[in-house]
């Protein structure tokens, strides 16, 4: 199996009394396209928000490239309110089962190593809740379900701004424009990206003046400009007609091949999902109800009941 890129373990996100994501575990491996599907309100976007640092989860662990990046356990008021599972797993009070007896040193060591490989902070209260920019810097970039382009900026500048993160200039050199070489390089890279996503001809237009489909492409270009290794797309085909959806499907495949990208996407267009996904996770009411390759998901009774049946109806 290829290298693991993203690993989500026992993630629960509870807002007040609402459990939006309930003990979700999933992983994405190098070069894969993985889809996260499920009915509206299932908690898909919330899962994205936890992975990218917008929300600190109530409980759980997220690792990226083998390193833990997000880790939390129910704290403060949530201690009492918490409705999820494994509440002590990421605390010092964690009592794992299946631990070999202390006398058996060999087995204890193997078991210990395995536990630490799973969670380097096992048995501690360690909390990791970086801001989204820190996570993006590690090589994860996303798009938004409700498009969030910078509205006063042109198409070109929207992508250029995303290059800010990987700058080598500081405030002084940038203000005095001593970084003109880097700036030049950035601008060339942005042009190249716009060429790839097919927005070269509209580069000087206001981002928000573009038609919907192009705005979604622009968001993808902007995310790519941060040089990610993992791309998260939240409903990239929302609001697109069948033809545009088909083009987008091909486009996502191209991105994977061209940039050697790993992709996690949320989508409702089942043609697209079944067409390009290597594996699929299905969420319902925050819980994972199925996972597998497209053929397995298509024939899964629970998925059909909870989602696919409904989705088919909706499309008719």
């Amino acid at each position: 199996m290829s290298k693991n890129v993203l690993k989500v373990e026992n993630v629960t996100m509870q807002f007040g009394g609402v459990v939006a994501v309930d003990n979700l575990s999933m992983e994405v491996n190098q070069g894969e396209i993985v889809a996260l599907i499920g009915p509206n309100g299932a908690g898909k976007t919330t899962a994205f928000n936890v992975i990218t640092g917008v929300y600190a989860p109530t409980n759980g662990l997220v690792s990226f490239g083998g390193k833990p990046i997000v880790r939390n356990h129910p704290q403060g008021k949530m201690k009492k309110l918490y409705k999820g599972e494994v509440a002590t797993m990421y605390t010092a009070a964690y009592i794992p089962d299946g631990r070999p007896s202390i006398e058996d040193e060999e087995a204890t060591k193997i078991w210990n190593d395995a536990e630490h490989a799973r969670d380097p902070f096992v048995g501690s209260d360690k909390v990791l809740e970086p801001t989204p920019d820190k996570i993006t810097k590690l090589g994860m970039a996303r798009t938004f379900q409700n498009i969030r382009l910078w509205k006063s900026q042109t198409v070109f500048t929207n992508v250029l701004i995303a290059k800010h993160m990987r700058r080598s200039s500081n405030l002084l050199t940038a203000t005095l424009h001593l970084n003109f070489k880097e700036e030049q390089k950035q601008r060339e890279e942005v042009m190249e990206l716009l060429r790839i996503v097919g927005l070269e001809d509209v580069k000087d237009e206001l981002a928000t003046s573009l038609p919907y489909g192009k705005q979604r492409r622009l968001e993808i270009a902007r995310a790519l400009a941060t040089n990610p290794s993992l791309l998260l797309l939240d409903e990239p085909a929302a609001g697109m007609n069948p033809q545009e959806t088909q083009e987008l499907t091909a486009f996502i495949g191209e991105i994977r091949d061209k940039f050697n990208m790993t992709i996690l996407l949320i989508e409702h267009h089942m043609d697209l999902v079944m067409d390009i996904s290597d594996r699929i996770y299905v969420l319902d009411f925050g819980k994972l109800i199925a996972q597998g390759v497209p053929a397995e998901i298509q024939n899964n009774e629970r998925v059909i009941d909870a989602y696919l049946g409904v989705a088919d109806d909706a499309e008719d």
């Binding site: 910078w150 701004i161 995303a162 800010h164 970084n179 941060t226």
Partner: peptide, 23 residues
């Protein structure tokens, strides 16, 4: 400069700015 562009990104959409790596 690139900083000024980052400022404008924060003004236009803070959540997007942060998601694109702007501290």
């Amino acid at each position: 400069s690139t900083y000024g562009r980052a400022f404008k990104a924060i003004r236009d959409d803070e959540i997007a700015a942060e998601a694109m790596g702007i501290n």
